[in-house]
Nucleic acid binder design. Sequence first.
RNA 1: GCCUUGGUGGCGGAAUUGGUAGACGCGCUGGAUUCAAAAUCCAGUUCUUUCGGGAGUGUGGGUUCGAUUCCCACCCAAGGUACCA
Length: 941
Amino acid sequence: MQFENERITMNYNFREIEAKWQKFWAENQTFKARNNSEQPKFYVLDMFPYPSGAGLHVGHPLGYIASDIYARYKRHKGFNVLHPMGYDSFGLPAEQYAIQTGQHPAITTEANIKRYREQLDQLGFSFDWSREVRTSDPKYYKWTQWVFIQLFNSWYNKDSNKAEDITDLISVFEKEGNTNVQAVCDDDTPQFSAEDWAGFSDRTKQEILLKYRLTYLADTEVNWCPALGTVLANDEIVNGVSERGGHPVIRKKMTQWSMRITAYAQRLLDGLDTIDWPQPLKDSQTNWIGRSEGAHVEFNVQGSDHKIAVFTTRPDTIFGASFMTLAPEHELVAKITSPEQKAEVEAYVEVTAKRSERDRMADVKTISGVFTGAYAEHPFTKDPVPVWIGDYVLASYGTGAVMAVPCGDQRDYDFAKHFNIPIPNIFEGVDISEEAFADKANTIIANSDFLNGLNFRQATRKVVDELEKIGQGQGKINYRLRDAVFSRQRYWGEPFPVYYVDGMPQMIADEHLPLELPEVEKYLPTETGEPPLGNATHWAWDTQSNTVVANELIDDQTVFPLELNTMPGWAGSSQYFNRYMDPGNDNAIYSEEAIGYWQDVDLYIGGSEHATGHLLYSRFWQKFLFDKGIAPKDEYAKKLINQGMITGTSAFVYKDMDSNKVYSKGLIEGKNTIPIHADVSLVNASDELDIEAFKEWQPDYKDSEFVLEDGKYIVGREIEKMSKSKYNVVNPDHICEEFGADSLRLYEMFLGPLEQSKPWNTAGITGVHSFLKKLWKLYGTVSDTEANAENLKTLHKTIKKVEEDIENFSFNTSVSTFMICVNELTAQKCTSKSILEPLAILVSPYAPHIAEELWERLGHTESIAAAAFPKFDERHLVESSKEYPISFNGKMKFTLELPLDMGKDEIEKAVMAHEKTKAQLNGREPKRVIVVPGRIVNIVG
RNA sequence: GCCUUGGUGGCGGAAUUGGUAGACGCGCUGGAUUCAAAAUCCAGUUCUUUCGGGAGUGUGGGUUCGAUUCCCACCCAAGGUACCA
């Protein structure tokens, strides 16, 4: 039987088809995931977006398309797939907009989300929208606040190496004080006994407990950005200025909430070995955590009780220490400086204080420093060691002081050379007349008393033992990672569930959450410099009614002031992946059943810019939730892929500086021109500018003379980040309108490897679009004719390749494979349903709309989404002969078709007998003939 | 400086264990169709050439019958990070 589908012979009407199936999926909830199933689970997660006012550009959906293909593929493979989406909807831009316009950020955010949803929907993603979360929704941030409270009520026990209840710690204090407690806590935590504890006031007890809690209030040096009126985390600062807006940042002491992420430094490091994440990302996190192994050493200061503590990674070189250097800000500087040196030291300290952190970082070459006049005492030789200050030592790392070993460290070496300080050589057979010798692996210690003859490892162990014996040091592991400041002086963020009694923070009880963000008149800081929440008139906690009440009612008896800071951007994103498992749950962050079923994320796709922010913080929260038995896994994402950035192809016109002329690209040589960005929508595929449209767009050029080449104005091109200010943004809406979502999806994948960054060029989309038209045409006639061997070979080769490609995230090569397949089947005039049916399933993860339509037209009534992935059958690819490449000295000259079952000797005989071989050899006798059956023949000589 | 990733036609890129370099697509050239255009279809397209060939995957070496693939040294680009003691 053969039938011709009338409508399928019509043109490929992608607009109608795509609208139809998007509606179908929404109405039938085709992609709703169940929280229990006989099928194996698979969780595919995208990094949820911040819904910005600019909407999506073509770069944004890249990762979503890839994850959608994977999610759809896994459904075809019989998995129960969780593929959710939501919005990271607290954030700065909506608040900045509110400051400018007075519009409530919630309104802006809602409008932006609506627009995002439209844009996402038109791309045909298989998200389970019933699970949508928004971080700014009180029903959601209730649980962000809840996690904060759990952190507040926990401390880190180094003995068990996990977070435990603060109540357990209190019982220990009551029983035996803190002398035996191995905890991660503040450095200034005092030692006390059980009796001491019993005698402490309630306030003192609270103060001490704050030194242990995993989130705590402390005076910290923070990065303050005056222009934004808020503190910023280290990862929010790029090159010394704010990541958003590029404003200067200064150091300032403020009382802030902090997260004791340093407690997890080692586990965050160790965990990296257990997860399949990209190496560069792991390296970023490893560097950020910055573990260094060494020793803590204390030097007594001669003639005083002061001790200078240093951290060194080279305790083995201690006998080479010929001076010490303190950071100019070091607290001992004022205390130990001799009267004679006082003036000079103070002048130096003042000069460095004036230099910004940026200047100091930029200027690494200039060596500066001052002698304090004080001497420390070498722990072993008891020799005096001069103490200097120098700005190459940073107050914020280690102890802010170093023991300088000029023969083993280049910076110490340069400093010593500059100030004529002796450079004793403590290495065997090493010349240090030109530079320091920092090679640990080849170190043999000399001139070092009991360390002589030892290598780095032996000497380190020995010296640490000796230091411990004399009580002047011990082995230590130092981390670069700092505790994370968790307070922001913003309006549009999660309020802390905290009120203050007598200045001490108190948590609002779980059952009264969420504490909702109050209304304010103005979104700016108050006149007294308090955060925006200081403008709220209803922002006090009534402990009787457990509600928010008017500020006038504050009596510090039953009504107390609430916290005015809000949480940072990463709060809401640190547990959203778990919340998706049970997003509607109002009684728990998620049910045990839900997390018991879904466990963790199987595939997480997102940008690498979150390496040391979100991706580190969320791992920390997960480990904490794991310690508390709230999450079953201590790493939440087994595999992570960073999609590359899609860059823009900016266009330039060249304005002559000396005249009113604007020159075409080919004419600028030797002229004094400056490039001006032109909007990419005004340029065609051949780089030709629409001059009239350009003049209309930039009226400043209305009267300019455009100098053409060959009658055309040709623009210059450059690859840059896609951004509004560079006029190189390409909007997916226009692409969908002109070519359809399936074309856009295919094209984004076709562009190149997922993880690689690559430039966008709209011109190329016609290739994949005409592929879809060819695919459509292929289904114009469908018959029950049995497939022939050729058809089956084409199909099965495609099945094999596409399946391998998806498993390897090599989506670009699948698109080529589809093109080859359709070209071949078209050439074969294939009409067999038994070929076209599985082909539709293969295509469906990539181009789901057209696949659904073709599937329906093949007679199916159910969505293609649940159809089983075609099974690859090796038998269809079996060949009987092979086109052998015949090469001479490794260069292929011609091919020769020979049966595959032919033996080595026969092949050689056949090849040598061939006339082309004789022609190549031209009478020479070959030295050697290499025959690899099934692969190649190579004739040497 | 250090760490990571990468370097292949005019462009995006392909080549799974060392075995026909440039698949697939864009662009370009020529042709068919058309009053014309769009669309579609066909052919060609790494460079070079005296039309026999010759060269060719950032550069220079090496291993091999054979190297885009493995090894060594270097150059360049992108991203991360930085007086980290």
